[in-house]
Computed example of a mutant assay.
Amino acid sequence: MQGSPILEIDLDKITFNTSQVVERCHRKGIEVIGVTKGFSAIHQIVSAMVAGGIDGLADSRMENIVELREKGFTQPITLLRIPRLSNVMKVVQYTDTSINSEISVIKALAQAAKQLGKIHRIILMVDVGDLREGVLQENVLDMAKRFTSFKEIKLIGLGTNMGCFGGILPSSNNLGVLVELGRAVENELNLKLEIISGGGTSTLLLIENEQVPAGVNQLRIGEGILLGTDTTNNRKIPWLHHDAFHLRAEVIEVKSKPSVPTGIIGRDAFGNIPEFEDLGVRKRAIVSMGKQDVNIKGIHPVDESLKIMGASSDHLIIDIEDSEHEVKVGGVIAFSLAYSGLLSVSDSRYVRKLFKGNCGPTTNTT
């Protein structure tokens, strides 16, 4: 282990998951954009997605996108967060497409594109119920008309977001609304939209059930490719790998202790008042990892008999009383990850990354 927690990444499984998602979507005439924000656009993982046949890349952080370009990735890249007015020049310089809903930002993008001698492509985001970004449905035509005054901007499609704020699931109804709005824009402006972007991993269930409306031709997939899970629909996707990532941390203490602290309970180091169930004396282990390394709500011991009791910034306490395997100091406990866990741990400089698969066994510290 060499001390630090390790995130093990199986690149072959990510490539396989990518190829499976791409194949199923392509059968329906839907392109797949690989979302890289969930793992801080670590370039080895991006390469595994590319090897799986991804049609393009997308990220919400310009820092990640700039790094991808500097690493030599030439695939089309979409900025998945509405551009900031303060960085429109970089958006035009490093991305092919951005999602938008604010006319002041679009105007600034047009000015930046003019200075750089480029045409910047835009997907207009439409709010069909999740209440994150996007114009309201009744304002779509008016907003689309305003695009025509910007020669350096090309409206290439409509998109929507599902599940990230309001938890709204994609359906044939709300995606059908997006398709109909796209047709209305085409008729009103006498143009052909290239893209109707119908959400992300949660829309894969509609593909499986043959319920995606005709006209949706792009999905933005991150979680499904990486973890083989669909948090919004609360399921594991049965035709994908679920174990491309494992987090391993070293045990630094094993002791039997009461399950309830002794004394007056105040707030913990994070301002919360902890609650404890009295289960008597329990055997427990501490591993060298905590909230500064990973969102502990997004990890689960691979050994299901182990239970996470809680954590401080750099200690994770685990109930091992019911384990059939010996847990001892110097040993290692393995964890699977949910999307929130992967999102946090991938960016932790305290967790080493170990890559296995198509690029060979390699490590880095970031």
Rank of each mutant, 00 (worst) to 15 (best):
G129E: 10
V22A: 11
S98G: 06
F355Y: 14
V251N: 04
T363L: 04
I265F: 04
G198S: 03
I168P: 05
I77G: 01
I296V: 15
R284Y: 03
E188Y: 00
P76Y: 04
L343D: 14
V294K: 05
F276N: 01
V329L: 04
V32Q: 04
N295C: 01
L175R: 08
C25I: 12
T160L: 01
V177C: 13
M1C: 14
I308L: 12
G29Q: 11
G166C: 09
I54C: 02
I320R: 00
S256M: 03
V135G: 01
T201A: 05
A285R: 04
L7S: 02
H120L: 06
A108Y: 00
L175W: 07
L124T: 01
T231S: 00
G56C: 15
F276T: 14
D127C: 03
A112G: 12
I264R: 14
I207H: 11
L85E: 03
E275P: 07
I196H: 13
R121G: 09
F147E: 00
R220Q: 08
K307L: 05
L131I: 11
V22M: 07
T362W: 08
R84K: 06
M143E: 08
T229F: 04
G290S: 12
G38K: 09
P258C: 11
L124N: 00
G163S: 06
I6C: 08
Q75G: 15
D10E: 13
D278Q: 09
P83V: 07
V91H: 02
G331E: 04
G271Y: 05
L206H: 02
R349P: 08
D293P: 03
M89W: 06
A269I: 15
V179N: 06
T78H: 05
K13Q: 05
A334K: 12
L316R: 12
S313K: 02
Q115R: 10
G199R: 07
K257C: 00
K107T: 00
V329E: 09
G360I: 12
G166H: 03
F39E: 02
L191P: 13
L191I: 15
Q115P: 06
A338M: 08
K236H: 11
P301M: 10
I106F: 06
L175I: 07
I333R: 11
I45G: 11
V216Y: 03
I252G: 08
G167Y: 07
K257N: 01
M162L: 10
